[in-house]
């Protein structure tokens, strides 16, 4: 079982950053009340990051991936998470064979 030093450093960096965010709230409790545009910007962080991660795969890889992503987005508002994933995966396999 291999352990790459750069990979280990990346994991440590991610772990340290994550732990700081987890305990950060304990230091600012009761003082952190965001409103208006600042709150909207903070609330936007998770969807903004998630979209940015998948945008290249979803939009610029090919037609099969782009169409499958659109299909997945439509069902995502109606079905539970695991069903959404299953439909997305099946769609991309079918479309890759058709296109």
């Amino acid at each position: 079982m291999s352990l790459d030093m750069t990979t280990l450093l990346a994991i440590v960096a991610m772990a340290v950053v994550t732990y700081i965010t987890r305990i950060g709230g304990l230091f600012v409790a009761d003082r952190l009340v965001l409103t208006g545009r600042a709150k909207a910007a903070f609330d936007a962080i998770p969807p903004a990051v998630l979209v940015s991660v998948i945008a290249p795969t979803a939009l610029t890889t090919g037609w099969a991936e782009a169409i499958a992503a659109a299909v997945t987005a439509v069902v995502a508002f109606r079905l539970p998470l695991l069903a959404t994933i299953a439909i997305g995966v099946v769609s991309v396999v079918v479309l890759r064979n058709l296109i």
């Binding site: 994550t18 965010t21 950060g24 709230g25 003082r31 962080i45």
Partner: peptide, 14 residues
């Protein structure tokens, strides 16, 4: 990227 994704923890913890 980890910091951006996990920044929400600060609000949750607070």
């Amino acid at each position: 990227a980890t910091l951006l994704i996990n920044a929400r923890h600060v609000l949750m913890g607070a």
